[in-house]
């Protein structure tokens, strides 16, 4: 079974939504709100799209509300992958 990791999330965020100078995606960001990292809901939607394509799963747009921080996003995606048996 695949596991979605924080480093994978960081990689996707920097490729698809960009990184501002001064934002340390490599630092301890797991529990910092996406908004405080400079990402809006579109960035989280984009993250969902990337996960959908990589793992062939479907994520509802409403799921954005379940992903306020990187840690919560990783948790949500892993729960989804487990459920889908990916």
């Amino acid at each position: 079974m695949s596991e979605f990791t924080l480093s994978e999330l960081k990689e996707i965020m920097s490729a698809s939504a960009g990184v501002d100078e001064g934002v340390e995606l490599d630092g301890d960001i797991a529990d910092v709100a996406f908004a405080d990292l400079g990402y809006d809901s579109l960035a989280v939607l984009e993250l969902c799209g990337q996960v959908e394509r990589r793992y062939g799963v479907s994520i509802s747009d409403d799921a954005v509300a379940e992903m306020p921080t990187p840690a919560k996003a990783v948790e949500y995606v892993n729960a989804l992958l487990a459920k889908a048996g990916v």
Binding site: A15, S16, A17, G18, V19, D20, E21, V23, G38, Y39, L42, A43
Partner: peptide, 8 residues
């Protein structure tokens, strides 16, 4: 420009 805005 800010890095975040480049791919957006």
């Amino acid at each position: 420009i800010p890095g975040r805005l480049i791919p957006q």
